[in-house]
Design a protein around this nucleic acid. Sequence first.
RNA 1: GGAGAAGUCGCCUAGUUUGGUCGAGGGCGCGCGACUGGAAAUCGCGUAAACGCCAAAAGCGUUUCAAGAGUUCGAAUCUCUUCUUCUCCGCCA
Length: 427
Amino acid sequence: MLDLIRIRNNPQAVVDALAKKGYKADFTQIIAWDDMRKSLITDVERLKAQKNKVSGQIPVLKRAGQPVEPIFEEMRKLGEQIADSDAKINELIENINSALAAIPNIPDDDLLPGEKENNKVVKVVGEPPKFDFTPKNHVDMCTDLGLIDYERGVKLSGNGFWIYRGLGARLEWALLNFFIDEHLKDGYEFILPPYQLGYDCGFGAGQFPKFSDEVYWLDCDEDRKRNRFMLPTAETALVNMYAGEIIDEAKLPMKFFAYSPCFRKEAGSARAEERGMIRGHQFNKIEMVQYAHPEHSMEAFEELVEKAAGLVEKLGLHFRVSKLAAGDCSASMARTYDVEVWIPSMGIYKECSSVSNANDYQARRNNTRYRDIKTGRPQYVHTLNGSGLATSRLIPAIVEQFQNADGSVTVPEVLRKYMGGIERIEK
RNA sequence: GGAGAAGUCGCCUAGUUUGGUCGAGGGCGCGCGACUGGAAAUCGCGUAAACGCCAAAAGCGUUUCAAGAGUUCGAAUCUCUUCUUCUCCGCCA
């Protein structure tokens, strides 16, 4: 949610900034509504003040034994006028809010405009492995080694689901354990959130109303506001934990990470090149979230990027970090860097972490504030999130990048202690 | 899932029977000040948010007693709906 005062103060600046995201903003209607709201409020508040004053007289007159009935008729008329104006004001507020809620976040100044083609690689670590044999793709590797059972996953739940088996399950769990330990070392608090969330969480995170069709709903009431959905990422939970609260400034930054499966419809995105576990309806992810003071959110952002990249690096994988152009950042985000891991069989880098700063966009939507020590006033926090990391993109990278001529896979060293010391996965 | 009780200012609590100077009293906590060499104790003062006048401060006004709707000239107080919590029962990992 954007700040209406900011829009009012300089609409053109906001229009220009949003244009970088490819969003055509026009605030004339919103501002007109807000103008109407303001003038109505001034009027109706004058009426209310008058009503309160007269109302306060009634007990005094009564006590003095004076007649009060004559006043009632006038008061009734006043009351009708007030109810009338209040209804209009509420309608205007609703209009304004739903219009504001549909507008994406303002991208940071330093972002390039445009889409993917303007993403900029800011860091490359390692290089693509060279094989002196014909490398296999991850689907074949995982199937041959018995790590993943794609066929039976489909049998159980349909396309987009798989079963982790045996060492595959242990590898998955080892990755998660490795990430958990690393985040604990960095002083992040471990959170296990509910996997079913209410509508407000989706709204607060900025995913609803626009993307409410991309999650799985558990109930089918006509009004989704009373229903729950399966979380598409733990961010949706973490970012709403303090909704409506005022946090002590001294507590900032607050740092969390959560494990959760993520459930996504991914409608219409089934593509031949995204076989295996590159894109599924359910995948595991550790998500990092920080609540930061606005003056320090950029540092928090850098920290999260470093952490995400550091994890991939410790695994020994070849990857790169890209700074996304304004139009490639999601609607809620002011700034996003992707950590992309090399998938040899596809010949491309695939996102395994996306680190973003929402600035105050989410905090405004779900009313998460801190109390400023100097002024004593509540201010919106900045919320940041980043995967740390999503395993479903890493297992393909690991089995492909670390495959050997005999069809085995070398287990990254940092994972071995979580897998009973196994160094190599073979048939 | 069934039956009952309850949700008041950071926390605890008064007020709900008898609707009207109740936006709301008291205690704790917290902040400031006095006393003290310093501290404790004591005493005094203060103690929410949103919105509007307004870009900001001061000030004034409006709104907010779980949320929403209703009755009424007037609702913390009466009615309805929803949510949450607690107790008992049922069911279960």
